[in-house]
Design a protein around this nucleic acid. Structure first.
Length: 460
RNA sequence: GGCCCGUUGGUCAAGCGGUUAAGACUCCGCCCUUUCACGGCGGCAACAGGGGUUCGAGUCCCCUACGGGUCACCA
């Protein structure tokens, strides 16, 4: 059996849409799972839509995701070139278009765009002198009967030939259309499995007809349903985020994004839902791909991202968190340890560390806490005592904890009677990355005492 | 509109003729606890509707509804 070859054939139109990335991922996974090759091909037959730097975005995204290709424009391969505009230079597409005309499976059309009742279909042969110089080459599809093919996800699909129009193969600028170039490239590159979106499901019979006319065996088709923003709209840039870069910039981890989109439209065999790329490649199976569109849920992706963040080593987390924390005089090890379980995405960090430079502005009723049984009045007492405690005892967590604990027992209150007001005094926040004592240690003795004294003044 | 495809909790989804219809996220409750989280335990919540076939249907067939795709010299 031939080695499996899948391809990712994006158009360089700008950013990497998550849906497109997922298609690339599936193609990569299918190749790796079956010990095959993953080929990258750039489809740039539309000169008007060409975007500067877009090819680099494709390279970079694939690389950061770990989806390395075995053949491609930059690394070459046995079927080079891998950019359609380059491939066209050899006359590749025109050659096959002419072959189709030869076989009466295509014809020249001289009609202006959008004209109806084109008479060219019945004109045998080539352009003659009296015709306009501009022409296109159209596929000559049968009028009767039906065409069917087998999709590995959807099964047998049959379309009446009357629905298949004479699509353009070669445009008047001499470039092949996407559909035509696709067929020629996939065959000449020996692609065995085409993985793409369901938007191509109904045009696949046209492809089949082309393969048949050329006497080629069609590859296997695997159509994947789209990622939706809601039940009736595709995920798009129009409303909210849709590009891979949108999420990495927000502080999502690459591994988490890949893990999440792999699960959007595909279900693994077991109950586990956390996979590395390699584990995905082992698990990947076409059986798990769903036929219906999936709605993108950022809340779920956040949860997955949170799991990845929590599983980071303290060193890795610190490295990733630093840009979101900034430069401060604080115990970074303690801070990061507190932050790690509190960040679902990295950008959650920034609003949590705003108390470090200075206490956040707050109203004194923040000292009211039902559960801790505190109020501005009790806080004043507790904070005054806290200053003494900090000054009298060795400045470390255990010794201070024991001191506060002893005071609490003596006064027959919970330790929170002291520590909640301490937290408020030190941060000005109702919720902080760590309790009063933790923050105290992070900030250091002098800074803590200074802030508590300020709070005492505020309360007096 | 024609043609093609789809429809299990709010979301992702398992299921492949006989199940108390998994699991995850969300939400709620409890426990842990110096706040908030993390973690642990528990809970709410679904087979689009109608006909068949069958001893038996989420699973097979048909119809309806709803949703998506496609009908470009765009990819």
């Amino acid at each position: 059996m031939d080695r499996i070859r899948t391809r990712f054939a994006p158009s360089p139109t700008g950013f990497m849409h998550l849906g497109v990335l997922r298609t690339a991922l599936y193609a990569w996974l299918y190749a790796k799972k079956n010990d095959g090759n993953f080929i990258l091909r750039i489809e740039d037959t539309d000169r008007a839509r060409y975007v500067e730097g877009a090819v680099e975005v494709i390279y970079n995204t694939l690389k950061t995701c770990g989806l390395f290709w075995d053949e491609g424009p930059d690394i070459g391969g046995d079927y080079a070139p891998y950019i359609q505009s380059e491939r066209m230079k050899s006359g590749l597409y025109m050659k096959y278009a002419l072959e189709l005309i030869e076989k009466d499976a295509a014809y020249y059309c001289f009609c202006p765009p959008e004209s109806e009742n084109c008479p060219c279909r019945d004109l045998k042969g080539e352009a003659n002198e009296s015709q306009p110089a501009e022409f296109v080459i159209r596929q000559k599809s049968p009028k009767d009967g039906e065409t069917s093919f087998y999709d590995k996800i959807f099964g047998e699909i049959t379309v009446p030939n009357s629905e298949i129009e004479d699509q353009i193969l070669i445009k008047s600028d001499g470039m092949p259309t996407y559909n035509f170039a696709n067929v020629i490239d996939d065959h000449t590159m020996n692609i065995t499995h085409i993985i793409r979106g369901t938007e191509f499901l109904s045009s696949t019979p046209k492809y089949i007809l082309l393969y048949e006319s050329l006497g080629w065996t069609p590859p296997a088709f695997i159509h994947v349903a789209p990622i939706m923003r809601d039940s009736s709209h595709k995920l798009s840039k129009r409303e909210g985020d849709a590009y891979f870069s949108d999420f990495t910039e927000k502080g999502y981890l690459v591994e988490a994004v890949i893990n999440y989109i792999a699960l959007l439209g595909w279900a693994p065999g077991g109950e586990n839902e956390f996979f590395t790329l390699d584990e995905l490649a082992d698990e990947f199976d076409l059986k798990g791909i769903s036929k219906s569109p999936s709605i993108f849920d950022e809340t779920k992706m956040r949860a997955i991202n949170a799991h990845y963040i929590r599983n980071l080593s303290p060193e890795d987390f610190k490295k990733l968190a630093l840009p979101y924390i900034g430069e401060h005089k604080i115990d970074y090890a303690l801070l990061c340890a507190a932050l790690q379980p509190r960040a679902e995405v990295l950008s959650d960090i920034t609003p949590q560390v705003d108390f470090i430079e200075k206490v956040c502005a707050y109203e004194i009723d923040l000292y009211n806490n039902k559960k801790m049984k505190t109020s501005p009045e009790t806080a004043l007492v507790a904070l005054k005592e806290a200053v003494c405690t900090l000054e009298k005892h060795e400045f470390n967590r255990d010794s201070l904890y024991n001191a506060f604990k002893a005071s609490a027992e003596e006064s027959e209150v919970k330790i929170g009677y002291f520590l909640y007001p301490l937290q408020v005094a030190l941060t000005g926040k109702q919720a902080a990355p760590g309790g009063g004592l933790d923050i105290c240690i992070m900030l250091g003795k002098d800074e803590s005492i200074k802030r508590i004294k300020e709070a005492v003044e505020k309360l007096s």
